[in-house]
Every structure is written in structure tokens, then in C-alpha cells.
Write a protein that binds this DNA or RNA. Structure first.
Lengths: 158, 158
DNA sequence: GATATTTATCATATGCACATGATAAACACA
DNA sequence: TGTGTTTATCATGTGCATATGATAAATATC
């Protein structure tokens, strides 16, 4: 997967808040339910986003979460940043610094691809995800999570 | 990280075999040592590649691994395929099928980026990694793996 | 202030990718 | 045929992302 599961939760939750939180704050419960995501885990994730200044949070009755930044100025990169280690993404083979030693054609091309990925996250705004179906990101991700079903690492089954 | 650690091992090992295995098979021991990668784990990884027809393997004295496909015709995609679940990579939010419901601008752009990534892996050949420093991929990945050092998930340290 | 409601935080569990160690099976060669 | 070398396979362990459940702290309303 390109981004971690937590980052996906974060994006989808922020989109949900952007859509439903214009008037009043949105509480964790309904968000977790709408996204089909573990409630307490989402709570922690949203807390991190609040701490990072992406969301505003409030406790007690009338509490909940709202955007701290307008959806049009909130990049995906900013939402996922707290949950991703971008440093590891520059070299295909996991090196932090890579260009130096071997600058073969493959690595030059990889730089291009890598940069275009980073650019996507940096320039795509939450508002860009609020297309036609305004809460599409709230649609629970597909097959009801076939978990704990002994899945051999990846290799084809015989 | 864009690809799993095991996939990185696989690429680096295959590159090593491509460089050092033209005359005689290369044994796991030296490969693991050169790459600074756990030996038995690499053994299992290479075995999978052999089963998938990427490598040829032989046991006993004179045993070891050699390419089963010329380096110029062996794509990165083919090397990493057994260790990656490509199905999960099509949608930014982890959905298998995504275009249908909401086809906002962001998703169209994501398709582009995603496709260019896949194209990179499909069209880049092992031979393309054998640039200047012919065994650059054999250089042990950087900082001696600071492991077991309580690293808080990602968030900045205070 | 008392109470209900909500986020914040803590302590702990689970599952999977990654890793380790030991043994079995194949092969080369004397 | 026997012996040493190497991959193949099995059984098990470890660490981290993900998840769970309980409790604390803040806020609104009466």
C-alpha cells in the first residue's frame, strides 16, 4: 500500500469532517461508524491531527472535531505527515541518501516518479476530494475485512 | 516505504546475483553478507524467486543461485510481485475498485500518478540497475539499523 | 455544584512482517 | 558408499502498526 492504514483513516476522517462539520463539531462516534473504523483508534488519530493544527477539537457536550484549516488549503501531505516517515521514501532501496554513489538511469527515472508522487500529496487538497459524491470517502472500504484468515505472505496458493 | 522490506532484499539480491553469478552460481551466505541481510530469511526469499522462475537454484557443492532470465528482460515488477499485493495499490484509500462511485479530479490525477509508478516497475529492468558502480545495490543500506530504539510512531519528538 | 457528555490518555492485546535456529533433503566428489 | 556442502523446510521468536477497553479530564447545561 502506498500510505499506511492510519493515514487512510486520517484522510477519510478529515474529508468526513469537512463535509459534515461546517455548522457544528462532529463527534468521533458518528465518524467511526460512518467510516467503519475502530472508534478509540480513530480518536487517537484525530487527537494527533488536532495537536498538529489540522483539526480543532473540543470536549464535553457540543464537543467534537472541526477543520482548523479551510479544506481548500489543506493538503493530503499535511494530513498524512504525522503518520508517515517521508525520509524513507527517497530511495527505491530504502537508503536515505542515494544519488551519490550510483546514479544510474533507473535512479534518475525513479527520482522523477518519486517526485511526482510527493507533488501529488503536496498539491492535492482535501477540497479536491469533495467531488460529486460529497462523502464518498466515508464509504466503508470494501470487502468486510477478511481478517485472521491464514493468508500466506503473498505467494500464490499452489 | 513504497515497497516492502522483503521486496528491497529481493531486488538487491537479484542485482547481486546478476553481477556475480555469470560464471558460477552464487551462494546465499556471501549474498547475505554483502547485503547485510539475515541469511535464512534471504534464503527463503530467494527460494520464492526460484519457485517463481526468476532465479535458478541448485543444492550441494556447486549449488547456489543464478538468474533464470537475462537481466535485460527481468523487470522490477517481476522480482517484487511475489512480495507485494498490487491489488491494494489502485485506490488511494485502499479500495480495490474506486473509479465507479466517485470520480473526482483528485482521483483522476491519482490514477495518473499510480499508473506511472506501475509503469516504472514494469519497464525498469534489473540491467538498468547495473550502472556505474556495478554492485551499488549490494551496498548495505545506511545507518546500521537503529533497531529496538523506542521510536514514537512518527510524530515529532516534542 | 451536580450531572451528563465528550475528548484525552493510559495500559494492554492482537496480527503480521520480519527474523532466527534447527533439521531435512539434494547434490558433488572422492 | 560416505562425507561435506548447500538449499529447502519447519518451528518458533520478535517488534511494530493496529486495535481494544477502561479511566481521567474538560466542558455545557441545569
Amino acid at each position: 500500500m502506498w500510505i499506511s492504514g492510519t493515514s487512510q483513516y486520517a484522510i477519510r476522517a478529515v474529508v468526513h469532517v469537512a463535509v459534515h462539520g461546517e455548522d457544528a463539531p462532529v463527534r468521533v462516534g458518528p465518524i467511526a461508524e460512518a467510516l467503519d473504523v475502530p472508534r478509540n483508534y480513530l480518536s487517537k488519530t484525530l487527537h494527533v491531527l488536532a495537536r498538529e493544527g489540522v483539526l480543532k477539537s473540543g470536549r464535553g457536550p457540543r464537543g467534537g472535531f472541526q477543520l482548523a484549516v479551510p479544506a481548500g488549503k489543506l493538503s493530503l501531505a499535511r494530513v498524512t505527515a504525522p503518520f508517515e516517515d517521508v525520509a524513507k521514501r527517497h530511495c527505491l532501496l530504502g537508503r536515505a541518501h542515494c544519488g551519490g554513489v550510483h546514479t544510474c538511469a533507473a535512479h534518475a527515472r525513479w527520482e522523477d516518479v518519486s517526485k511526482s508522487l510527493q507533488a501529488y500529496f503536496a498539491t492535492t487538497m482535501i477540497a479536491d476530494l469533495l467531488g460529486e459524491a460529497r462523502d464518498a470517502a466515508a464509504i466503508p472500504v470494501p470487502p468486510p475485512r477478511p481478517r485472521a484468515t491464514a493468508r500466506r505472505p503473498c505467494v500464490r496458493r499452489n
